[in-house]
Design a protein around this nucleic acid. Sequence first.
DNA 1: GGGTCATGACGTCGTGCGAT
DNA 2: ATCGCACGACGTCATGACCC
Length: 363
Amino acid sequence: MAHEVGDPPQRTPLSREMQDRLRHGIEDDPHKAYRTLVTSMVQHHWTEQQMREALLDPEHRGGWWYRRLAERNGGPAATGDLRYRIESARKFIAANPPVVDRQSASEKVAQIHASAEARPWKGRTGTTDRLVLDALCRLAQKAGGPVLRASLRQITEEAGLGSADTAHRATRRLIDAGWLKKTHDSTDTTGTGWTLRKPTEDTGTVVRLFSGAETVPISSAHDAFRRGALGGTGYRVLRLLLMTDDPASARVIAEALGVTDRTVRTRLGEMHGLGLVERLDDGTWRPLVTDAEGLARRLDAVAKFRRTAGRGEKVRERHDKAREMWLDWASDQRRSRLGVIAGGRPQGRPVKSNTQEQRRAAR
DNA sequence: GGGTCATGACGTCGTGCGAT
DNA sequence: ATCGCACGACGTCATGACCC
């Protein structure tokens, strides 16, 4: 069907992020999900009718707010609200024109991510590196392309790691392997500048992964995937099982992930005991829970049981504290330079630590 | 704000191997 | 295919010091 000059522009697909938002909504802000979806749909030339159909689809959690409005206040009221939203979106888009290149830049990140997905990540550091690369891909998607700025602390939190030092080592390995380039040093207000890329040289076997869901409703940052609970490898195994329609054997999973089947079996056995996966008669495995809410509930229980619940929060608190301390110190520095503080300069930089005696006492 | 380098204790994790 | 075990690797955590 040829597109004639003068026809209204053809509807184009939403970005992956927005498709995801339409499917899953935003947990603590359904109204934001609705607003942003309408804006995105306007940007992609959807008609009012197409928007209504998508929002009314009970499979789409992103339309929850709109459906509730229709139920409570009636269809005409909901239509009125939708038209108002469309009008607001048009004004917003006129004032904030979308970056033309954004979609292709975002595609590029998706390609890098897919390339990472298709390779095994061997050994003890492989899983950590993979989690950090995943985290960088997510941050890059938010930034709109493979060029981004992120502090090691941000990356640590996003990847679900316990310390920035671990993330730092992983970024160095990723740089060496050609996945990452450091483009800018950090400044007072921004993190380090990074560019994601595909390694130029072939890094080994390319594993054909399962075709299936592109997004899975679990995050490596969940406390259930901390060290001491299911771990990063547990996350990768579960993620793989959630991505495939067919049950998979430990050997096949091991090959895809680049670890030994011994390791995969250990993880599967653990997850079996925790009610996350089940073993079929032919020795293959499949997830027991696949829906987002069921998984979230089960993973929360796992984190609690394995005593890793709250670790992510602790990491964030530690980082916030470091930021606060620095701010205090920096403002003292400024004031002392101006001669505001009687007694002169503050003594030394903020120390992140206490004394050896306090340390011992804390143990 | 952020990064880098270093130290050391602790304990988890991935692996190899042999046995079943 | 699976499991138990031993072992080395290395991630985590806490800390200190220094730099831009």
